[in-house]
């Protein structure tokens, strides 16, 4: 449905990729690790390799979690925007479909958060 308005209602989305100066936003949700209260929002280059993203962006973001040292990103289970996804480390984010405002869901079997309470 469109907005009921007193005149023509013409709008532009505020967060198109063109507004991010060559960068894009990627979200990561680490399942059962709610010590990080919500999915992370990262600003990254679409040309960054996934291996680079893991090492330089995601690894530092989760480093304070006691489970973090036991996470192997390549052996974990991934979803990209809700669909099963197999990561290719040496390929760029965008080239493997991780586009602007995509969300990666990371599941790490065997790791279920602080005291196993999904924190």
């Amino acid at each position: 449905m469109s907005v009921k308005a007193i005149s023509d209602y013409i709008t532009q989305p505020k967060d198109t990729v063109a507004n991010f100066n060559g960068m894009q936003v990627v979200y990561v949700y680490w399942v059962k690790h709610l010590m990080y209260c919500s999915p992370f929002a990262f600003l990254v280059s679409p040309d960054m390799t996934l291996a680079g993203f893991f090492a330089e962006v995601l690894r530092p973001a989760i480093k304070d979690h006691p489970d973090s040292t036991r996470v192997n990103f390549m052996e974990a289970q991934w979803l990209l925007n809700g669909q099963a996804f197999s990561p290719t480390p040496e390929v760029a984010l965008l080239a493997q479909g991780i586009d602007h405002k995509s969300m990666l869901t990371l599941t790490t079997p065997g790791l279920s958060g602080i005291n196993g309470c999904a924190s």
Binding site: C37, A61, M103
Partner: peptide, 30 residues
């Protein structure tokens, strides 16, 4: 937490809420 959070497009709260019947899972929608 030194990474910025994902925000809900409507209420603008970080997407921190959990499924009504499963408090171990975020009720994220897209």
């Amino acid at each position: 937490n030194n990474t910025l959070p994902q925000l809900c497009q409507v209420c603008q709260v970080p997407a921190l809420f959990t499924e009504p019947d499963d408090p171990t899972k975020l009720s994220h929608r897209s």
